[in-house]
Computed example of a mutant assay.
Amino acid sequence: MASKMASCIFCKIIKGDIPCFKLYESEKTLAFLDINPLSRGHALVIPKFHGAKLTDIPDEQLSEILPIAKKLVTATGAVEYNILQNNGRGAHQEVDHVHFHMIPKPNAEEGLGVGWPQQKTDMDKLKALFEDIKGKM
């Protein structure tokens, strides 16, 4: 873990080794502007706790994430926006440190573009899946 943290760009930003346009900072959370934005005001909210995927982060380290994302929405004046968090390369994650994007969607060209490949539903299979997942909650 230490070697991954040492090479992690977000951990370097947290430590102050790499500068950022810091919008918010507390003991466990950092928010800053994305330097490759999809739209004006695109920002990242990250837990300071290093973990690659959401399931690697203790619950108490996530408590400020959505409240800070809401503050960013208000501060940027975004009316339509996406809150995005990716886990793994196949799910479009590029930095292996949990991060949440707040991406304003001012028009059709700017912001996040999303495909939504819906699948046909077999109600019997859906009920079996429901029972399986609910049993593990």
Rank of each mutant, 00 (worst) to 15 (best):
M1H: 10
M1R: 07
A2L: 08
M5V: 09
M5N: 05
A6E: 15
A6G: 08
K12S: 11
I14V: 15
I14L: 05
D17W: 04
D17H: 10
I18P: 10
K22S: 11
E25L: 11
K28N: 15
T29L: 12
L30F: 06
L30Q: 06
F32V: 01
D34I: 08
N36W: 09
L38W: 01
L38M: 14
G41C: 04
A43S: 15
A43Q: 00
L44D: 05
V45L: 09
P47I: 09
F49D: 02
G51R: 07
K53M: 10
I57N: 10
L62D: 01
L62T: 06
I65H: 08
L66Q: 07
P67M: 00
A69G: 14
A69E: 14
Y81F: 15
Y81H: 09
I83T: 01
L84N: 04
G90A: 14
A91N: 11
H92Y: 12
H97N: 11
H97K: 12
F100G: 07
F100P: 03
M102Y: 03
I103G: 10
E110P: 00
G113R: 06
W116M: 05
P117A: 06
P117F: 06
Q118C: 06
Q119F: 04
T121G: 01
M123F: 11
M123K: 12
K125F: 08
L126D: 02
L129H: 09
F130C: 07
D132T: 14
K134Y: 07
M137F: 06
